[in-house]
Amino acid sequence: MPEWLEIAWRTLLAVAVLFAMTKLLGKRQVSQLSLFEYITGITIGSLAAYVSLDLEATWYLGLVSMAVWVGVTLGMEFLQLKSKTVRDILDSKATVLIKDGKIMEDNLKKERLTTDELMEQLRTKKVFKAADVEFAVMEPSGDINVLLTKENQPLTPKHLGIKVSPEQEPQTVIMDGQIMDEPLATIGLNREWLDAELEKLGVAIENVFLGQVDSYGQLYVDLFDDQIKVPEPQKKAALLATLKKCEADLEMFALSTKQQKVKRMYRECSKNLEKVIDEVKPLLTR
């Protein structure tokens, strides 16, 4: 067999084995590499190169070595799941960098992190003053997570005592000009509804790059032609306007009647509707 053909065959074999072993190790091997996993990735890659190019050595020994490395890594991951001590040894512990607005200089030195690097990491979290930080910790992965002080945290409906209903994830119903029937069925809709919504927007299905339906049943589309501007759905705004019109009508009815009993009824209904509008307004204006 010619050398170039043997190298091509070995390379294809190494790629297949490497892909299978990487799948076996799981997604964490790619997204959150620990120090040991980082070393494992480099070593397995080097062994794959050895299997591909070293024509003088026995090539299958490289596959044996790769299998041993993967087996050791799987064993380490199993031990990490069962023992916190093993996790602390292999992944190390999280390190507190800021506490109560005070930078922990000794911990910075321990992690070999300069003040400039710390401030850079804080700025990536949209924090520009260390004094605004209640708690900052460096995770074993190297990421820095930040908890702001109470007065610097963003205002949420919970802070205002407002309860909001859970929102379902948007469903992608059109992709690359093709209708996705399964997401449509998931939210209880069909192609006839989708065709009617597209007709309202004045858009043909083949011109839609991406179409999504939110939890309120509103369709948002992105077209292949970025120069064309599609009007945003106005169902929520129309509903809010209708509720306000009903409230105004009740007030007008209360003013137009001379019967006190009927007048009180209209005004009571108007007040109740006003309360309903105040409760649903955050949902209809976002």
Rank of each mutant, 00 (worst) to 15 (best):
L201I: 02
K229P: 01
P282M: 08
I103E: 08
L61T: 07
E197G: 07
K263N: 05
Q260F: 12
L81V: 03
S31K: 08
Q260L: 14
E37G: 03
D176G: 04
P140G: 07
L97P: 03
M66W: 13
L35V: 13
V230S: 07
V203L: 11
T95E: 14
I144M: 04
L13I: 06
K229V: 13
V173S: 04
V173I: 14
W4R: 00
G177H: 05
D278T: 06
A48C: 11
F78H: 11
V64A: 15
A238G: 06
L18Q: 04
E105P: 00
A20K: 06
I39V: 05
V64Q: 06
K263I: 02
L283E: 09
T73S: 15
L155G: 01
M180K: 07
K275G: 13
L189W: 05
K244C: 03
M1T: 00
D195G: 03
G142R: 09
Q178Y: 11
E197I: 07
K84N: 06
L79M: 15
T73Y: 09
T22D: 04
A238H: 09
L33D: 02
I44W: 13
A185I: 02
T242G: 05
G71P: 03
M1L: 06
E232S: 14
G26M: 08
K129M: 13
N207W: 09
E182G: 03
R10G: 05
E197W: 12
E199D: 10
V86Q: 02
T95G: 10
E105I: 13
D181V: 11
G202Y: 09
V51H: 15
W69P: 00
N145I: 05
L219M: 07
H159V: 01
T156V: 08
S52F: 13
G101R: 01
T285V: 07
L243P: 02
I89V: 12
F128G: 00
L5R: 00
N107A: 04
I44F: 14
C269L: 10
K200L: 14
L283T: 00
I103M: 14
A241Y: 08
A49I: 12
D181N: 09
V262E: 12
I39N: 01
V86S: 02
L198F: 08
F128N: 00
G211L: 07
V276A: 13
R112Q: 03
K129V: 01
G217I: 03
V96C: 09
D249Q: 10
D132N: 01
T95P: 08
V146W: 11
A237F: 14
L219P: 02
M119K: 08
I174R: 04
S31C: 11
P154W: 11
E192T: 08
S31H: 11
L108V: 09
T40W: 07
L201M: 15
L113M: 15
E206R: 08
S165G: 05
K200N: 07
M265T: 03
E117H: 04
Q121K: 14
Q227W: 03
G177I: 04
K99H: 14
M76T: 10
A131T: 08
S215Y: 12
K244G: 02
Q178F: 15
E247I: 04
L63D: 02
P183M: 02
R286A: 09
E3P: 00
V221F: 10
W4K: 00
V137P: 04
D100E: 14
K275F: 14
N272I: 04
